[in-house]
Every structure is written in C-alpha cells, then in structure tokens.
Design a protein around this nucleic acid. Structure first.
Lengths: 177, 177
DNA sequence: CATGCCGATGACAGTCACTGTCGTCATGAG
DNA sequence: CTCATGACGACAGTGACTGTCATCGGCATG
C-alpha cells in the first residue's frame, strides 16, 4: 500500500487542462488545480516550473531533435530537417484529439500564446544545435532550423484546422515556396 | 512650476536599465526602480505593462513595418522585406551604444530572453500583416515575414558582436544562403 | 527483525509582480 | 472663477512562486 496515489504529474496535467478549458487560464489558480488532483500547490511546483509549463509537453521537440541527430551523414541540412518534420508529423497524427484540445486552450489565452512562442524559439535553438553537431556551420544551422520551425508552424496551423488527416501534403506544399 | 518632474517614463526606463545592469533583473524590484526615479510602484505600471517591457522599446518594429507598408507596389515580397531590413539597419547604426548596453542586460537574464522571443514573434506577425495588406497571399506572407525576422536576428547578432560598423554586408551574406 | 537512509509529499510563512480604487492637486479651457 | 482632466500617490488585495522543515512509506543493509 503506497502512501500516495500514483502518477501525480499526470493527474496535475489533466486537472490543469480540464480547468483551463472550463474556466479559462487566468481564472484558474494553481491551488485549484492541485486540489482537483488531490495534491497541494507546492507539489504542483515540484512537477512543473510554472503555471504555463503544464501545457507544453515537449514530446514533439524530442522527436524532431533525435531525428535530426540520427539522419544519415550524407543528407543535406534541409533533407535532415524535412525528415525530422515527417517524423514529427507521424507523432502528431496520433494524439490528434488531445493536441487539438490543448491547442484550443492555448488559442484562448494570450499568456499561453506567449509560452508557445518561447517554446518554438527553444525548439529552433535545439534544432540548430543538433545541426551543428552534424557539422553544419553555425549561421547556416541557425537559418535552416528557423526555416524548419517556420514550415512546421505553417503546416501545424493547417493541420489543426483541417478535418482530414493530412500532414505530408501540407508540408510539401509549404516547402515549395 | 509644475507639480512633478518631467519625463517620468524616461526616468523610469533609465533607472530600470541601470539597476538591471548593476544588480541583475531578478534582484531588482519594481518598487526600487520607482524609488530611484522618484515615483511610486503604481506609476511604473501606468507607463509599462510589466517589469520586462521597460527594456523593449519597439522603435525598430515601427521602422520595419512602416517601410514594408511604404514599399513600391512593384516590389516583390522579399524585396520589400530587404528594404525594411536596410531601413532598420540605419536606425540601429545610430543608438549603437545604447542598444549594446540593453542587449547586455537581456543576455544576462533568461526571463528577458523570453521577452525577446515574444517580441520577435510579435514582430513577425506584424510584418506578415503588413505584407498581406500589400496583397501578398496569407501563407506566403507568413513565411516571408519569418524569413525576414530570421535574417534580422542572425545579422543583429553579428552586428552586436562586431567592433566595426557594418550591417548591410552581413545582411546580404546571410540572405544569399 | 531492527536500523537508518531516501524520496515524494504536506504545511507554512514569506516575497513580490500586478491590479482596482479612491483621493489629491496643478493646469488649462470656458 | 469654476470645473474638468490628467498624472500621480496611497492603500489594500490576489495569486504566482520560493525556501524550509516535518512526515512517513519503501528499501537496503546488517
């Protein structure tokens, strides 16, 4: 018999997303989230750095970066980036409902939109770093990463709006521009 | 004899930058900034939305957007963006010392770096909007704006580090990639 | 079985960013 | 002169976030 219910982090995240969706981000206090999860406010901050972070998981980031790092040495930077985008697309194609719900919460709140910008910036920095480790020169790595993120965002926006399940198609079309 | 010293906003900004530089951003409270400026904390928030905003003026943004809007109708999107970048470069070439000092403050603090990301994202959105008003199609406008911001950031980073006064040269070289 | 360390959590007090509201008073329009 | 207005001070309040210590099951070790 363990002392606490399992998966505290998951309970906090779910409680937070529910309440952000139901009452809005600003109207939800961390204490309320913790209470719904059967925990205390202090414990919330042991699992998440701040009130926003609970929304941003970072799994897509991991796929993007690891695919970049694992691309064949012969691939050009943009080929590696494209491969990473494809891999991230597969992850997104599952989790579609969850992702759309989360995105609705973000769309409803300026503060979370800022958090998203920060997340994208960190993503670009991480991708640039991954490219540099493959031997791509510094400035070029930064620009390729920025381009990758820009394409990702454009495709993601369509993907969220679209009813059908397409991701590759959208991606390729943006990339042609 | 007026009731208050003039230029409250300027005094607050200067006091803030001094204290951020001397003691660090986190170690500086808004009450301290206001006290050094001979004002109250409440008045600080009448001039700036939050503790970060005092660092981000937004003048470069104005130049970028207005140049975009004023570009000749015959110019392609990327030509307009390049012209805007050049105009912003001229503004930066003056104010060089001030800009470098401010950038040192930002570089020393993660929270301000986040603010910078947000600022860049807002800039990209504004530039995209300006392009759309010139008749550029939606997605293309977004990507062109993102590209412009990416080039701006890469050039700005070099410009900050370099001892000499060059901006155009750096810009052009990035653009060629 | 006894002992003692460890890790996740609770309890609690404290700081500070930010907001709402009301009072004050020089200034300028009429 | 009168009155509205703009810019500020005073003050109280909320809530995000942090530091610190106490608690107590689980586990290894002897």
């Amino acid at each position: 018999m363990s002392r606490w219910q399992p998966n505290a982090r998951g309970r906090l995240r779910q409680a937070a997303l529910e309440m952000y969706g139901e009452h809005g981000y600003d109207q939800t206090t961390v204490a309320q989230i913790a209470e719904r999860a059967g925990l205390t406010e202090r414990t919330f901050y042991r699992h998440f750095a701040d009130k926003r972070e609970v929304v941003f998981s970072g799994e897509v980031r991991d796929v993007l970066v690891s695919t970049l790092a694992g691309a064949p040495p012969s691939a050009t930077p943009m080929q590696a980036v494209t491969a990473a985008l494809d891999a991230a697309g597969e992850v997104l194609d599952q989790r579609r409902d969850m992702t759309r719900r989360r995105q609705a919460v973000i769309a409803a709140n300026p503060s979370l939109q800022q958090g998203e910008q920060v997340k994208y910036a960190a993503l670009a920095a991480d991708m640039a770093e991954a490219l540099r480790e493959r031997g791509v020169e510094g400035v070029a790595a930064g620009l390729a990463a920025d381009a990758g993120v820009a394409v990702f965002r454009a495709a993601f926006e369509r993907w969220i709006r679209a009813d059908e399940h397409r991701y590759f198609g959208g991606l390729v079309r943006e990339t042609l521009d």
